[in-house]
Computed example of a mutant assay.
Amino acid sequence: MKVHISAAIAAVASVAAAALLMPLPDAPAPSGRLGVVGPIETVSVEAGRFSYAVAGEYQKSGRVIEGPVVERQFRRPVEIMKYQVSVAEYAACVTDGACQPADTRAAGDAPVTGVSWRDATAYAAWLSQRTGDAWRLPSDEEWSFAAAERFGPEANGIVEDDDGANPAARWLAAYRYRADPKERDMEPKPRGHFGVNSNGLADLGGNVWEWTETCFVRNRIDAAGRLAEATTNCGVRVIGGQHRGYMSNFLRDGKSGGCAAGMAPPDNLGFRLVREPAPAVGVALLRRIVGPEGRG
């Protein structure tokens, strides 16, 4: 049966108005388990343009080169957790049987570490089910945009003063430079220890690197400077921290290896999540009534 669009919109407005007067349902119960979801503090990073150093490895004539820097536009705000997911918050997911215990000695409001990309995505799925919101890992673009000045131009870890004879020389030099343990305190710190950035996010660029949903890509550039080949490997994911890194998705300890581009290993692996905006009540109802293409 066909439904006239104007009549459908009027019906939606009436139903939406009534819905606003109804009490909101409680979050899904944990089915008798004991995991507790506390308040989640987020920051809304306003939409805008930014310069983005594209993630991935770039090679030209067998030599690793810097990737391109491009202008990107976010047309809507990015809502992201102010803090990294804490030990206590992750433990609630473990209590519910939805997450594996983390390999960490920290406690309380310290960021959970010793978690893999798989652990982080399992937590995001559990939190989404428990709260009714859509939570996920940020993309590398979203993470870089939110990190702002805490994510510097040296993110790719390339050292420029090599002679080019050995493509691995710059990676080895960068690794030695950043792997030097002198004056490094690798113990995870309580929330807020590293301060906030210009967007109001805490502890970016500290000693916890954060998982993103972005896959590692190896790119080959031809002699004319054009992209000749791109190989995507989603078994390796991009991580953000003091510099950008690439880590096998099952690893929980960055120091055990797995940085795809040969950079210094991260001190700790943790994460924070992005919350997707909820669709407007009227839009959701209209889609149900007239269909995604405006047909009844």
Rank of each mutant, 00 (worst) to 15 (best):
D26H: 07
R75H: 10
S31T: 05
D109W: 01
V37L: 04
R72W: 08
G38E: 04
I65Y: 07
G48K: 02
Y83H: 15
V43W: 10
V69T: 14
E89I: 01
R72S: 04
T121C: 00
E66Y: 08
Y52V: 07
A102K: 12
A91H: 09
G114C: 10
F74P: 04
V112R: 13
K82E: 15
P68Q: 13
A107W: 02
M22N: 11
Q84A: 15
M81F: 06
A122R: 11
S128P: 00
A125W: 06
E71S: 12
Q84I: 00
L21S: 11
G108S: 05
A55E: 15
S116V: 11
A47G: 12
Y58S: 00
G108H: 05
G48W: 01
A107G: 06
A92N: 02
K60F: 01
S61I: 00
A120K: 10
T95L: 12
T131L: 08
R72I: 04
G38K: 12
A98R: 13
E79V: 11
A18K: 00
G35K: 14
S128V: 06
P111I: 02
A125N: 08
E57F: 09
Y52P: 04
A19P: 08
L20T: 14
Q129E: 10
Y83G: 07
Y52R: 09
R118L: 12
K60D: 05
E71R: 12
R136F: 06
I65V: 15
Y83Q: 13
G132I: 09
P101C: 02
V78K: 04
I40L: 15
G62K: 03
F50R: 03
A107R: 14
A98E: 12
A107V: 05
S31H: 11
A91G: 03
V45Q: 08
G62D: 01
Q129L: 02
W126K: 04
R105P: 01
V112N: 07
A102W: 09
G97E: 00
G35M: 06
I40T: 13
I80K: 13
P111T: 05
D26C: 02
E79D: 11
V115G: 08
M81G: 12
A107T: 12
W126I: 03
I80W: 13
F50T: 04
R33N: 11
A53V: 04
T113F: 10
E41R: 14
Y58P: 00
Y123R: 07
D109L: 13
M22D: 14
A18T: 02
